[in-house]
Structures are given as C-alpha cells and as structure tokens.
C-alpha cells in the first residue's frame, strides 16, 4: 500500500509528494512528530481515529467509464456479431444471375460487412463520382484563375482598357447622404441661418 501510494503521489504532483518525501528526509524525532500529528484523535483519546488516504477518485471514475462504455458499445455489438455468426455460416461466392444487377453491398463477403456497407457507407460508385466532382470543381476554378491572370497581364501590358468594374452595393446610404447634403445646401441658400 505504501509503495502504491508513493507511485500515486509521484503521478499526482508535488502536493501529494510531500508526505512520503518528508518521511525520508526528516530526522527521526521530527518524523515521530509528523507521524503522531498525522493521526487526528477525535476527542477522548480512545481508539477512534480518522485515517488519511490518497484519493481514489481517478480509479472510481475509470471503473465508471469502463462500465458505461462496455454496456453502451461492446455488449450490443458483441451480441449482434454473435447472432450474425451463429445464423449465417461461411458465405459462398456465387455467379451473378442473368439480367440481375447486384446492389453494391452484395459484393462484400461477410454479412456484417454487407450490413455496414448498406447502412453506414456510401457506395463505391458514389464515392467515385463525388471524387470526380471535386476534381471537376478544382479544375474549373484553376482554369478561371489562369484566365483571370492572363486577362490582367494583357490589360497591364497593352494599357488600352480602363478596367471599369461594378460593385453591387446597397445604395440607400448614398441616397441618404445626397438628401442630407441637399438639405444643408438648401438651408444655406435660403438665408435662414445667416
């Protein structure tokens, strides 16, 4: 127990390290004092004492988590696996019947693999098409970037185009500013505040 507590204290920081270290470093007299002081006599001087222990919190938590996750995942999946393997023997390879297009999961060998492919995964055809779609998008944007760079290079080289551009903005503030300015102009010219 003392060996375990030394290990625990080493892993739990300097605060826990003090007790075992002090037992090594202190002089015998001081050690006697510490040993006596570490036992609290809860009144009366009889046998009733309160012992001090290192914390068991981490170990309890670990056991709780193990219990929880085993019941959550390992037990249902294990039961399912056992059921499938009991009710399905070794799968056999069959020729594809005439005029029949197998679903994509029917190419997997084990029933569990088939179920996982059916329920949780995209089909290989879909993955293939998705990948090609991403390639298409990347290639299009690369083409557009190249074209834009070329256009800008030609414009700066020839200098015959002013490169007007249009930015779609909300014109409400522009109108407001215009009205405000107009008001101020009218007030100024009406002679009221002169």
């Amino acid at each position: 127990m003392s060996g375990l507590s030394v290990l625990r204290s080493a892993s739990m920081g300097s605060k826990m390290l003090q007790a075992p270290l002090s037992r090594i470093i202190l002089t015998p007299a001081a050690r006697e004092t510490v040993l006596k002081a570490s036992v609290r006599r809860m009144g009366g001087g009889h046998g009733r004492t309160m012992q001090k222990y290192p914390s068991k919190f981490d170990f309890t938590l670990l056991k709780d988590h193990l219990h929880f996750y085993v019941l959550l995942g390992v037990v249902p999946l294990g039961l399912y696996t056992m059921y499938i393997n009991l009710t399905h023997g070794k799968p056999e390879l069959k020729d594809i019947p005439e005029g029949y297009e197998p679903e994509y999961w029917e190419y997997f060998r084990h029933p569990i693999s088939q179920k996982f492919a059916k329920w949780f995964h995209y089909s290989p055809e879909q993955i293939y098409e998705m990948k090609m779609h991403h390639i298409k998008i990347a290639q299009d944007s690369a083409k557009m970037a190249l074209l834009q760079r070329k256009v800008e290079a030609l414009m700066s080289q020839r200098g015959d185009y002013k490169a007007w551009y249009y930015m779609p903005i909300n014109e409400r503030r522009v109108w407001k500013a215009y009205e405000k300015e107009e008001d101020a102009y009218n007030r100024h010219n009406s002679g009221k505040f002169n």
Binding site: L86, G89, K90, P91, E92, L93, E106, F108, Q114
Partner: peptide, 17 residues
Amino acid sequence: NVVEPARLNKENHYYHR
C-alpha cells in the same frame, strides 16, 4: 439443434465484382 436450423433459410452469398 440451434445453429443448423437457424441457418436453413438464410441467404448467404456474395458476388464477384
């Protein structure tokens, strides 16, 4: 008594792609 009757009517095959 358990395993072989349970396996009787189960489809259990796969195809070669």
